[in-house]
Write a protein that binds this DNA or RNA. Structure first.
Length: 482
RNA sequence: GGCCCGGUGGUCAAAAGGUUACGACACCACCCUUUCACGGUGGUAAUACGAGUUCGAUUCUCGUCCGGGUCACCA
C-alpha cells in the first residue's frame, strides 16, 4: 500500500515553527517510503481565517523545498483539498453515525453549556426520535455529538509512544458538527484522512489525548485505522526559567520571523529536524536529500525539546560558511544596502564579513562605519597587547599617512605590505601599526576585518581623509604634539 | 484537579543490563592572530530521588518528586 501523509495547516496567517517541523516529518516519511505528501487546508474555523494565508503556506513550503504531490493548488485524485469546499460531505457522514447510534443531536445552547460544571452532561444523548424531530422542525439550532461508550476503555498504538489506553469514562461526547454545519477539526480530520487514504497521521503530541476519540470514530465507521505518529512538542524557555509550548512570547517562532531575522531556510530546517529526531551516526548537517534517505520513524524521540537559538545560530553560521562568494553576495546585498550609501565594492565587504556573522540581520550595524565616520574617544588607542597608546599611535599615523599618500596602486596586498614594512622600518610589532591605523580609519575599537582590508574597501581618498581627521582628533582631545 | 505523556550536563542528545556514560551547541582556558571573528588544542559540566529484580542497573518494575500536554461549537 502506498504511504500517504498530509500536512494540514489552518490558514491563520503565519507558519509556526512547530507546524513546519510537522510538515517536514510528514514529508520525510512519505519520501522515505516513496509515497505521497498531500497538502490540505483546514479552514473550518471561519473566525480565525486570515485572508491570503494560503499563499504564505505555499511560499513557505516552496522556500524549504517541501514539494507536495497533491493539494489545492495542484489538484489530485482526492480533492477538493480545502475543507470549506467539502462541507456537505462531513454532514453526510455525521448523519451516517447517527443512524448507527454512534452520534446524536444536541440542542443545548452555549448559555446552558457554560453553566454546567465538569463538562457536557450528555443531556441530549437519549432524546426520543419524536422529541428530536420536533426540535429540528422548529429550527432549533443544534450540533451533532459523538456518542462515546459509557464504560470500557479504548486503546490505540502510536508509532512513537507505543500502546496507550484510556477509560471511555474520561472521554467526552465531543462535537462533530458545529451549529454552523461545519465540522470540528477532530471530525473533519478523520473523514478527510480516510477519504484521502492517508496512511500515517503525523502530528504534535498535544493530540495524543484526543486520539482515542479518533479510534472510536474509525471503528464506528468500520474504517481501517491509520498509523499514528505523534511528535514530541517543541518548547520555549520562559523568562522565569519554566518551559511551555513554543509560542510568540518566546521570540521569533514563525518561519517568516526567523527569515526576517536573517536565518537561512536550510539552517532552520536542519535545526528543527534534530528537535525530536536523531540520526544513527553523529552527523548534524543534513541536506533535505540526505534526510529523505536517512530519516526513520524509529528514531523519533518521545521527550519534548527546547528550541535553542544558540544552536540555530551555529547551523546558520555553518550554512553561511558553505556558500560561495556569489551566493553570499546575493544574500548580503539587501543588508549591506541598509547601511551603506556610498559606492563601495560589495565583494570586498562580503569577504570581510564572511565567518564574522551568524545571521544576516547583524550586517548593517557591523559595517555602518564604512559609510559613516564618527568622532570617537581617543583612549581606545591605548592597548597593551599591541603596545600602543595615544602618543605612539599619533606618531605611527603621521608616519603611515605619508606612505599611503604616495601609494598609487591601492590594493589589499600592497596595503598589507606597506603596513608590515612600516612596522619593520619603525622596529615595531605589526600590531603596533595595524591597531592604530584600523582605529583611525574606522573610529571603532572593534571592527570586522583588519586595517588593510578596511583601507582597501573605503579606498584611498576616504582613507587619507579619515587618518587626517583622526590625527586632528588626537591633537584636540588627548595628546598635544610636543 | 482528572486523564495522558515524559525525566541523561545550561540546551539537543548517544548508550536498547557490564562504557573512564558518545557527540554537538553554549561556556571557560590556551594557541594562532592585525581588533573582532575564523581555525586549532584542552577543560568545566549529567543519568531527579527512593525501593525492588539482578552477580551487576542510565537501561527492567513500583512509588515519590519534577516537567509538559489535554480537558472549547480552536485547530
Amino acid at each position: 500500500m502506498e504511504v500517504r501523509t498530509r500536512f494540514a495547516p489552518s490558514p491563520t496567517g503565519y507558519m509556526h515553527i512547530g507546524n513546519l517541523r510537522t510538515a517536514l516529518f510528514e514529508y520525510l516519511i512519505s519520501k522515505k517510503y516513496n509515497g505521497s505528501f498531500i497538502l490540505r487546508i483546514e479552514d473550518t474555523d471561519q473566525k480565525r481565517y486570515v485572508k491570503n494565508s494560503e499563499d504564505l503556506i505555499y511560499k513557505t513550503l516552496r522556500s524549504v523545498n517541501l514539494k507536495h504531490d497533491e493539494g489545492p493548488d495542484i489538484g489530485g485524485n482526492f480533492g477538493p483539498y480545502v475543507q470549506s469546499q467539502r462541507k456537505e460531505l462531513y454532514l453526510k457522514y455525521a448523519q451516517k453515525l447517527i443512524k448507527k447510534d454512534k452520534a446524536y443531536y444536541c440542542f443545548c445552547n452555549k448559555n446552558r453549556l457554560e453553566k454546567i460544571e465538569g463538562g457536557y452532561d450528555r443531556c441530549c444523548r437519549n432524546f426520543s426520535i419524536e422529541k428530536i424531530n420536533k426540535l429540528i422542525n422548529k429550527n432549533t439550532s443544534h450540533v451533532i455529538r459523538q456518542k462515546i461508550p459509557l464504560d470500557g476503555n479504548t486503546s490505540f498504538f502510536d508509532e512513537v509512544f507505543g500502546e496507550i489506553t484510556v477509560e471511555n469514562n474520561d472521554l467526552d461526547d465531543q462535537i462533530l458538527i458545529k451549529t454552523d454545519k461545519l465540522p470540528t477539526y477532530n471530525f473533519a480530520n478523520v473523514i478527510d484522512d480516510h477519504l484521502m487514504k492517508i496512511t500515517h497521521v503525523v502530528r504534535g503530541s498535544e493530540y495524543l489525548s484526543s486520539t482515542p476519540k479518533y479510534n472510536l470514530l474509525y471503528e464506528a465507521f468500520g474504517w481501517e485505522i491509520p498509523k499514528y505518529v505523534h511528535l514530541p512538542l517543541i518548547m520555549g524557555k520562559n523568562l522565569d526559567g519554566t518551559v511551555s509550548k513554543l509560542s510568540k512570547r518566546h521570540g521569533s517562532v514563525s518561519f517568516e520571523d526567523l527569515i526576517k531575522e536573517g536565518y537561512l531556510p536550510e539552517a532552520i530546517l536542519n535545526h528543527i529536524v534534530l528537535l525530536g529526531w536523531y540520526p544513527n551516526n553523529k552527523k548534524e548537517i543534513f541536506s533535505l536529500k540526505e534526510l529523505e534517505n536517512e530519516f526513520s520513524i524509529e528514531n523519533i524521540s518521545k521527550s519534548q525539546s527546547i528550541f535553542d537559538f544558540d544552536k540555530l545560530n551555529w547551523f546558520n553560521f555553518e550554512y553561511l560558511k558553505s556558500k560561495t562568494q556569489n551566493e553570499l553576495l546575493k544574500l548580503f546585498n539587501f543588508y549591506i544596502k541598509k547601511s551603506i550609501d556610498k559606492n563601495l565594492d560589495y565583494k570586498k565587504i562580503v569577504n570581510m564579513l564572511k565567518n564574522r556573522i551568524t545571521k544576516l540581520s547583524e550586517i548593517p550595524e557591523k559595517i555602518s562605519f564604512l559609510d559613516k565616520f564618527e568622532n570617537y574617544d581617543v583612549n581606545i588607542y591605548i592597548n597593551k597587547k599591541s603596545k600602543t597608546d595615544v602618543k605612539s599611535s599619533f606618531f605611527v599615523l603621521e608616519f603611515v599617512l605619508k606612505k599611503l599618500e604616495n601609494l598609487d596602486d591601492w590594493n589589499l596586498e600592497n596595503l598589507h605590505d606597506l603596513l608590515v614594512n612600516t612596522a619593520k622600518e619603525l622596529n615595531l610589532k605589526n600590531g603596533a601599526v595595524m591597531f592604530p591605523v584600523r582605529i583611525a580609519i574606522s573610529g571603532k575599537l572593534i571592527t570586522p576585518g583588519g586595517a588593510a582590508e578596511i583601507l582597501d574597501i573605503i579606498q584611498k581618498e576616504e582613507s587619507i581623509f579619515r587618518i587626517k581627521k583622526s590625527i586632528a582628533l588626537i591633537q584636540k582631545m588627548g595628546f598635544k604634539k610636543s
